[in-house]
Amino acid sequence: MPQMNMVQAINDGLRLEMRRDSRVVLLGEDVGKVGGVFRVTQGLFDEFGDSRVVDTPLSEGGIVGCAIGMALYGLVPVPEIQFSDFIFPAYDQIVSELAKYRYRSGGEYSCKVVIRTPVGGGIRGGHYHSQSPESLFIHVAGLKVVCPSNAYDAKGLLLASIRDPDPVLFFEPKRIYRAAKGDVPDGDYTVEIGKAAVVREGKDVTVIAWGAMLYEAIAAADEAAANGVDCEVLDLRTLWPVDIDAIVESVKKTGRVVVVHEAPKTCGFGAELVALINEKAFLHLEAPPMRVTGFDTPFPYTLEMEYLPLAHRILPAVMQTAQF
């Protein structure tokens, strides 16, 4: 099996689906000739031409609005927003239109659009090239939200997203774009939306993470193991609809849980996860669920490694939960 990093795996998935389905079109800023600022669409312009890989004017509202129109017509647009920090000029189109088309038309219309966009910090990007806005989209009824942590899942989830009947926000953790390498099958396969993965089995504490922070959770779990605490690490992969069964099953086993995410704590997805755990597994809990997250400030530049919920911050939370 070929080894790929996430950039290559997503590129491979896009190429495969574009060959398979002539309705698939890519549009965005710099996605054409240069292949995107992270080179995720590299080579696709040459293979599919400028009518299917489109460099657009600099307007996210234009990109998403047109993608919605294309989808209504019957194409399968996969727009790219260059950084998720720049998705907000399109927020109206996403929240008011994309998310609600099916519902507001009584199911007469639907919008099959997959918005790909890099997320996350740790790349010296400061306020505007580092944010993790997932909860702003999870909160909006009608959107599915996906965030893979490795090359295999990236390709499989992308193909599942493009074939999904609903709009999907496909968040790509840019810090591990090239670092997360692994075996990726050549041909067609999908990873089911809505299914988490247990990446490490354990009996003492459940650590829930996704995207780039998964590796920090694993590192913390390794250190915790050295201190006699056996962590189960869950990679959510799909943030919404979340795999509630996998979470409840794990929490029932461990009775202790730590949720990790880069986004600020307040109203972050961790808040929803903890609430769900309280609702569905309260009597199995042995300790208050904990959150290790970004702080409630804008994303800083120089101090970014202190801001991020890296292993050095996850480990004490895990130990505290275990010893509660």
């Binding site: 120089t302 490694m305 202190e306 050095h312 911050r313 480990l315 004490p316």
Partner: peptide
Amino acid sequence: MVAGPRAKGH
């Protein structure tokens, strides 16, 4: 944060 452990590398 101030009381907690420091990140590596800065």
